[in-house]
Simulated scan of single mutants.
Amino acid sequence: MRAGSRLSERWFNLALWLVALLFAWFLIGLGSLVVGDLPQVEQRYTLEQFLETDPARASSETLKQVRREMDDTRRRIEQDQLALEAAQGATEGARETFANWLKTRDATQRVDQDPGLIARTQRLDALKEAERAVEDRLTALAQTQADLSEREREQARAESALRAAAQEKLDAAERGQELRVFGYRLALTLPLLVLAGSLLLKRRTTRNWPFVWGFAFAAAFAFFVELVPYMPSYGGYVQYGVGVVVTLVGGRAAINALHAYRERQAQVEARPNEERRTEIATDQALARLAKKVCPGCERPVALGDPSTNFCPHCGLGLFEDCPACTQRKSTFERFCHACGTPGAGAVLPAA
């Protein structure tokens, strides 16, 4: 804020900066929604889109069939295991009964029991044979289960190979899609950044400057901040490359402006004192004097010394005596602050 500006004008400037920040905030919110929704212009890819249809369907059906056979074999194994347990229980019971019968026969030594011995032995052999038959079935089922497991592994490897090939195609498609979406975002944010720079160069001092600055803040935020989460692995090169170019262009412009300013100042300091004072606005001159610098050349001046009436660097008249009351006053003040008399060197504020 300038020292010579009116209080209301200062508040208006604050309000206009608030307008600029609010405008930037709303633009940033709108831009984040647009940038975030840009992927919706592209379709979403799935792995099934890149699978070879016929081989994938045949592999899937074969794998399902193998697994159904494995489930059926597993159920048969469970049933035969129950049958084996029952057969083993029956054999064990018959063996105990036969052992008890043998003890009784040995005790009685009755010959008429020999046919019974043969019959009981045959029944025991039959039970043992049934038990062995169940065991044979279990062995065959176990072999079948092992064969099916091997077929399942082979078929799973084949299906995995198909899916791996499809995954490679999916990754390539997604990389291409990511590149296109990044191009959309870059095509949206980079022109906004260029436009913002152009507006700052040409219109930052116009009456609509709050909107110019607000748009510039939003464009810079969108490019250097909002674009970051969506950048691919190489996106940083684009962002930092643009940053380097912007810095080089802005730095070169600042260097040229500095040299042009020095040349203008040298030309101005060579002109007469009165002519130079008429070209400096009162508010600007008073603001620089408040900072204890010369309003013309902006070099430090010992304003605390009452004998300092001219700038020792460029010779610009800074103070004079009031023609009415001889009170010392600034040559840029329109009226004497002691008696209100217009100053001899008073100038109107520049438009």
Rank of each mutant, 00 (worst) to 15 (best):
R203E: 11
R204N: 13
L186I: 03
A165L: 12
D171Y: 04
L200R: 03
A172K: 09
Q167I: 14
L195S: 13
L200S: 05
L170H: 00
D171E: 10
A173I: 03
V181W: 03
P191W: 01
F182H: 06
R204D: 10
Q177D: 11
G176D: 11
G197T: 15
Q167K: 15
D171N: 09
Y184H: 07
L170Q: 00
A187P: 08
S198A: 14
Q177A: 07
L188E: 12
K169E: 04
R185D: 02
G176R: 05
L170V: 00
D171A: 06
E168M: 14
Y184E: 11
A187I: 07
E174L: 05
T189S: 14
L179E: 12
R203C: 09
T206M: 07
R203G: 13
V181K: 02
Q167N: 14
E178T: 10
F182E: 04
L186Y: 02
R203A: 11
T206K: 11
A187C: 14
R204V: 07
E178L: 12
G183C: 08
V181E: 02
L201C: 03
R175Q: 15
L193T: 03
T189L: 15
S198T: 15
L199H: 14
A165I: 11
W209S: 01
L186M: 06
R175C: 08
N208H: 13
N208Q: 15
G197P: 04
A164P: 15
N208M: 13
L195K: 10
N208D: 15
L199D: 05
K202N: 15
T205K: 12
R175H: 12
R180W: 12
W209T: 00
L200D: 05
Q167L: 14
R207M: 12
A166D: 02
L201P: 01
E178N: 15
V194D: 00
L188I: 10
L179D: 09
L192R: 05
G176L: 08
V194C: 00
G183Y: 02
L201W: 10
P191V: 03
L201V: 04
E174N: 09
L195N: 05
L199P: 02
V194P: 00
L188N: 09
A172T: 09
F182M: 06
P191K: 02
A173Q: 01
L192T: 06
R175K: 11
L179P: 05
T206Q: 13
D171P: 01
R204L: 12
A172V: 05
Q177Y: 06
L201G: 02
S198Y: 13
L200I: 08
L188T: 15
V181S: 01
L193V: 05
L201N: 05
N208G: 15
W209K: 00
A187R: 11
A164T: 07
R203Q: 10
R180A: 06
K202L: 11
G183I: 04
R180C: 10
T206F: 12
P210A: 04
T206Y: 06
R203D: 09
A165T: 13
